[in-house]
Design a protein around this nucleic acid. Structure first.
Lengths: 199, 199
DNA sequence: TGACAAGTGGAGATGACCTCCATATCTTGG
DNA sequence: CCAAGATATGGAGGTCATCTCCACTTGTCA
C-alpha cells in the first residue's frame, strides 16, 4: 500500500509546501474559489509540479483530510483508554462538534468533497468510521448502549452535522443532534420508532 | 414573488420539456456527468434557450427540487391532519427514507447541490424545514416530544441521511438514524448527553 | 566531479460554459 | 385573416480554468 519510493529531497520540500498552503487555504474556506493554477503559484510551485504531486483537487484534499482524520482517531483512542465507554463516546462526539466549529472552512470543504466524489475520500473516512465503530461497540459491550442500531447511523448523523455547517443556528443544532443521538442510543425505547420496513 | 409575466405558449412548452428531461436525468443520477450544453440538445432545445430559462445548473435543479419539496410538504400536512402528532412525525421521517430510497439519483444530486451552494436551494429547503418544524412543534405541544432540542437538528439528521446515500448499508443505517432521532426525541433522558458548551 | 535520474515550471492545447444576435415564432389589433 | 411588434429560439464563437508536455534545472550516487 504505502510502497512509495523514497522521493527526492527537492520533491519532498515542494510537496510539503503544497500541503502547508493547502491546509491554510482549506481553513480559510477558499479552496473552491481559487483557480487550481493560482494555487500552485500561491504555494511557490509551477503548475506542472502541483499536478505531479496531486493530480486533482480531490487528491490534494484527501491528503489534508488524511492528517485531519489521523488526529481525530488518536483522540478517540485516548478517550477510549481513559473513560468509561459511554462517556468516551459522548466526549468524542461532543468534541467532533467543537472541532468542526473551530475549523469551519475545513468542514465546508470536506462536506463539498464528500458529496461530490465520496469515493475519493472513502479511504480516509474509513479510519474515522472505524474509530466511531469501536467507541460504539465498547459501549454496547458494557451494556450502556443499545445493540440494535448500526454505528454507521452515528456516522450519518455526523455527516449531516458537517454538511449543514452553514445553517444560521449551526452550533446549537449540532449540539442537539448529538444529544438526540446519545439519548437515542441509550438502551430500550423503541415504542414509537419501529421502522416500517417493506420488502 | 410569483409575479412572473404570462410567458408565451412556445416558451412554456420548451420550459416544460427542459424540466421533464431534467427530472429524468436527475433520477438517473447523471446530472453532473453531462455537459450542460449537451443537456440542452438532449431536451431538444438550443443552448441559448436553456440558459434563458435556467441561467445555471443550480437554477434548474432548484426548479426540480421545488416540486419535489412541494409533494413532501403536502404529505406532511396530510399526516399531521390525520394522525397524533408523534405518529405523524414518525411516519413522515420514515417516509422520507422510503422516498430517498426510491429516488437515489435525485438524492445524490440534491446532496451535491446542498453541499456546493446551499444558498441556491435554501428557498426550496425552507418549505421542507417549515414542515418538519411544524410536525415537531405539534408533538412538543402535546407533550410526546421534548422541548429542548431544535427541529433543525432533525433536519440535519435528514441531511446526513441524504448526503450519505451511497454507503453500502445505507437503508439499514438510515432507518437506524431515524430510530435514534425518534427515540432521542422522547421526553427526558439527558443524563449522558449534556453538551459541554463553552463560551 | 561527472553523468544519469528525478523533478520543475510555464506555454499552450483542450474543452466546458455562457453570450450574443440574426432568425423564427407567437400574438393581437384592425 | 394579416401585418407589425413583441417575444423567444438556437448555435457559432469568445472566454477562461484545467491539465499536458517537454526543454531545462536540480539532486544523487559512484
Amino acid at each position: 500500500m504505502t510502497a512509495d519510493k523514497p522521493l527526492r529531497a527537492d520533491a519532498r520540500r515542494k510537496r510539503e509546501a503544497l500541503l502547508a498552503k493547502a491546509r491554510e487555504v482549506f481553513d480559510a474556506g477558499e479552496f473552491f474559489d481559487l483557480r487550481f493554477d493560482d494555487f500552485a503559484r500561491l504555494a511557490g510551485v509551477g503548475t506542472g509540479t502541483l499536478y505531479r504531486h496531486f493530480p486533482t483537487r480531490e487528491a490534494l484534499a484527501e491528503a489534508v483530510y488524511h492528517e485531519e482524520v489521523a488526529g481525530l482517531c488518536d483522540r478517540a483512542r485516548r478517550l477510549q483508554a481513559t473513560l468509561p465507554a459511554a462517556e468516551a463516546l459522548a466526549a468524542f462526539l461532543r468534541g467532533m462538534v467543537d472541532h468542526i466549529d473551530a475549523h469551519t472552512g475545513l468542514a465546508r470543504t470536506l462536506a463539498t468533497l464528500m458529496a461530490d466524489r465520496s469515493g475519493d475520500l472513502a479511504e480516509g473516512s474509513r479510519a474515522l468510521e472505524q474509530a466511531v465503530t469501536d467507541l460504539v461497540a465498547a459501549a454496547v459491550r458494557d451494556g450502556t448502549v443499545r445493540d440494535d442500531v448500526d454505528a454507521g447511523a452515528v456516522l450519518m448523523a455526523l455527516h449531516g452535522i458537517g454538511a449543514a455547517h452553514d445553517r444560521p443556528g449551526w452550533r446549537a443544532e449540532a449540539d442537539d443532534v448529538i444529544t438526540l443521538v446519545l439519548d437515542g442510543l441509550r438502551r430500550g425505547r423503541t415504542e414509537m420508532a419501529q421502522p416500517a420496513r417493506r420488502n
